[in-house]
């Protein structure tokens, strides 16, 4: 590598490669990438793809931490590649791997079918508590009612929390932190009336009780959603539902 960045710095990026048609198993491949202090890991990967090795595959779109496509393991931690900077690896090397706990489709691209199926199962939309006609106008909400769920609505489906969750790693049936945050986002919305239906997921054997309160999901979340908090609130709700149904049998899981 003779070419260097404006500041003359070069970093060695080790990338986990896997091309199913030719590689029997994933392996690490190193590239020397010249960089400047404003370059993200994603830009480093783009440099590799454009200048060094066009066969490298990875997902990205917005490059500003909003689309949730560029989640990967960076030096072993679940991170958004566009929100992580090459200057922060002073040892001059960084390892980039596909997101943990998911099957690899190709190189840094993972399969998210499992997550999408789970997402569908929780009805991730507002199911109106009471139908209103157009003439009746909007569904109004106070700032206090917004406060209850707003944080959980910031989820960008980046799956970093899934890569962080040891329980999802052990048991992929667990719906996982992100889904619990989204489920809570709709349940906690004053306009929504489908909490009892979603309880079928939250209170099931795949639901909240798989969590052992590790809390790493909330640490890695790039949008401060705090999925661990959503899981915890739903443990309490699911327990309440479990015991209450004995005196008030209706709704919830079978």
């Amino acid at each position: 590598m003779s070419e260097t960045g404006k500041n003359g710095k070069v970093i060695r990026i080790e990338v986990l490669r896997y091309r199913p048609e030719q590689d029997r198993e994933p392996f690490l491949q190193s590239y020397d990438v010249p960089f400047t202090d404003d370059m993200s890991v994603l830009q480093g990967l783009q440099y590799i793809k454009d200048r060094l090795d066009g066969t490298l595959s990875f997902r990205w779109s917005c490059r500003m931490a909003i689309c949730g496509s560029c989640g990967m393991m960076i030096d072993g931690e679940p991170c958004l590649a566009c929100k992580t900077f090459l200057r922060d690896f002073p040892a001059g090397a960084v390892r980039v791997e596909a997101l943990a706990h998911f099957p690899i489709e190709r190189d840094l691209v993972i399969r998210m079918d499992d997550f999408l199926a789970k997402l569908e199962s929780i009805k991730p939309w507002i199911v109106p508590k009471e139908e209103r006609t157009l003439a009746q106008g909007e569904y109004l909400q106070t700032p206090a009612q917004l406060d209850v769920y707003e944080q959980f609505s910031s989820c960008i489906n980046c799956l970093l929390c899934y890569a962080a969750c040891p329980q999802y790693g052990l048991n992929p049936d667990f719906v996982g932190p992100g889904i619990m945050a989204l489920l809570h986002r709709y349940n906690a919305d004053s306009r929504d009336g489908a909490a009892a239906e979603r309880m079928e997921v939250a209170g099931s054997e795949a639901g909240a009780f798989n969590c052992t309160a590790v809390g790493y999901c909330s640490e890695v979340c790039p949008k401060h959603v705090d999925p661990a908090n959503a899981v915890n609130q739903n443990k309490t709700r699911a327990a309440g539902d479990y015991f209450l149904r004995l005196v008030r049998p209706k709704g919830g899981a079978k």
Binding site: K118, S121, E200, G203, S204, G207, A238, Y242, F243, K254
Partner: peptide, 16 residues
């Protein structure tokens, strides 16, 4: 996934 949608009895043990 549907198979796992059985109601969990965890609340008893979690409560204790």
């Amino acid at each position: 996934m549907k198979a796992a949608m059985k109601r969990s009895n965890a609340p008893i043990f979690w409560g204790l």
